[in-house]
Write a protein that binds this DNA or RNA. Structure first.
Lengths: 209, 209
DNA sequence: GCAAATTTTGACCGATTGGACAAACGTTAG
DNA sequence: CTAACGTTTGTCCAATCGGTCAAAATTTGC
């Protein structure tokens, strides 16, 4: 595991944040190999050697970014609560995921980029932490099904399809806007999506009469 | 527009195909900027200058690949037929899309890469051909809804969610397999996905009693 | 206010990259 | 057979890249 966090001055904390913010922008639009340190440095408003004073290697930036990302990314699923009303829980899970796609599209794209390339840097996390979390929540959902609270389906593929549909509005945003056109592709598209997804998943999951 | 197709010798046709096949492999796993001409040349079993004899610039390979891709990619949607039975038509559309994710994951990832980066090279096609096709099919679906053949929803977002869920099994394959684990993540995962998606979409779209 | 520590910069380096080019090699048609 | 054409290769180049380094500028602790 990591050693104890190194002591950091005020300037170091500020500049590191600045760099991570700039790197998020650059990495998420160009991918890791498609991004250059110069680009990130310029976006952060500093020179390349100066940036390298805070992060010694390009990979270190990416790594730090990914570590932070995964936690926020899984938070919505973590909140899925065994105790609450099943349909309400699932509805707010979908809503939270869609809000993340709307409010943090760069994070979504960064993640998508990583997975697309075979997840070379986070494979252990996927097989470990992520799998464990999904298995746990799948068991919760299975419990709801057994109790007749929601219709029976495959909980894993249900989760996949919630991920897929919500993240689609971040990752494929340009396509969504291109297809919807200037009128329907405006700010309202996320509300339309929310209505549609609620109907698709929640109505579809209501227990069969 | 392009001039008339240039005359090509037998060797040129064969070698160009070889290069495109190799480039599909390389581009889809590393992205455009993440791939080098050397990599593609090696995968195609020829030297870099030799490859550059057939495609003068790296971009030309990518461009050719994207042009071919879009047609095959849209073919399933093109087949969605006004005449057929609505639920049957939608069911086979979903099945075809999922089969493409299974059989042509590299093409799917290549496309995803392009969109993720803002679709710099195919934006006009998205706003033109793609939008026109989707609008046309959305109208077909709307007709089915008006006729009471399927439940009412937003046809555009319905199409998006079919794209998202099916392509997810190609683009996020490593994540899917990591989460499902060695047992459930084997070859059967596409059949499980097919069953799940059919239930989600088709049952969800049955007209309300 | 000053010495020590931290931050910033410009100059530089080796490796990799996309691509050019001419010469060598093969193929094909008459 | 041979001349014209098509193909392949080795060598080379300029640009870009990630990263180093020592010196200069700045901030900090006392």
């Amino acid at each position: 595991m990591e050693g104890s966090a190194p002591r950091r001055t005020r300037i170091q904390q500020e500049k590191r944040e600045l760099i991570l913010e700039a790197a998020l922008e650059v990495f998420s639009t160009n991918g890791f190999r498609g991004s250059t340190i110069d680009q990130i440095a310029e976006a952060a408003g500093m020179s390349k050697p100066n940036l390298l004073y805070y992060f010694r290697r390009k990979e270190d930036i990416h790594e730090t970014l990914m570590e932070r990302l995964l936690e926020t990314w899984l938070a919505p699923l973590r909140e899925l609560d065994d105790i609450g009303d099943p349909l309400t829980e699932l509805r707010s899970y979908i809503r939270r995921k869609l809000e993340m796609a709307r409010d943090f599209p760069r994070e979504s794209r960064l993640f998508a980029n990583e997975i697309l390339q075979g997840a070379p840097r986070i494979m252990p996390l996927l097989e470990g932490e992520l799998k464990a979390l999904v298995d746990e929540k799948a068991a919760v959902i299975k419990g709801w099904m057994r109790a007749g609270k929601i219709a029976r389906t495959d909980p894993w593929h249900l989760i996949f399809s919630i991920w897929a549909t919500t993240q689609h509005y971040a990752d494929f945003d340009v396509q969504v806007r291109a297809v919807l056109g200037p009128d329907r592709g405006g700010d309202g598209r996320f509300e339309d999506a929310a209505r549609f997804l609620e109907q698709l998943f929640i109505d579809g999951l209501k227990p069969k009469g």
